[in-house]
C-alpha cells in the first residue's frame, strides 16, 4: 500500500489527512491486507458464496408501507426550506 493509494482513497471519501495520518494508515492498511491474504490462502473451491449467507429468499412483496412524517424527515437536517433539504450548490455541475 503506497502513500499515494491512501491519498486517493481519502480524497474519494472527502477526508483531509495529515502527513502523519497518511503514513500511519498506509501501515495499518498493509496489516489488514496481510490478514486478508492469509484468508485468501484457504481453499474455498467447494464453498459457494451463498453458502455463507441465509438460504431463504429474503425478498418482500410489492406492497406499500407507511412513510415518515415530513417533520421527522427533516428533523436532523442542518438546513431546509420547510419541505426540502438545502445543500451547497454543486459548483462543477456547469450544465443545466
Amino acid at each position: 500500500m503506497q502513500r499515494t493509494d491512501i491519498e486517493a482513497i481519502a480524497s474519494l471519501a472527502r477526508l483531509d489527512l495529515t502527513p502523519e495520518q497518511l503514513d500511519r494508515f498506509a501501515t495499518q492498511f498493509e496489516d489488514i491486507l496481510g490478514l486478508f491474504r492469509a484468508l485468501d490462502a484457504v481453499d474455498t473451491t467447494d464453498a459457494s458464496r451463498a453458502a455463507t449467507t441465509e438460504r431463504h429468499r429474503s425478498l418482500r412483496e410489492d406492497r406499500v408501507a407507511p412513510t415518515l412524517p415530513l417533520g421527522d424527515v427533516l428533523a436532523n437536517n442542518p438546513a431546509s426550506d420547510a419541505t426540502r433539504f438545502l445543500v451547497p450548490k454543486i459548483l462543477d455541475d456547469r450544465a443545466s
Binding site: 418482500r60 406492497r63 406499500v64 408501507a65 412513510t67 415530513l70 427533516l74 419541505t83
Partner: peptide, 21 residues
C-alpha cells in the same frame, strides 16, 4: 407500487420528501 428496497410508494408529483422512510 413500492420502491426497490423499502415500502415507500412510487409516485410522480407528490409533495417533496413525503414518500421517504
Amino acid at each position: 407500487e413500492s420502491k426497490m428496497f423499502c415500502g415507500c410508494p412510487v409516485r410522480f408529483g407528490a409533495p417533496p420528501n413525503t414518500l421517504v422512510c
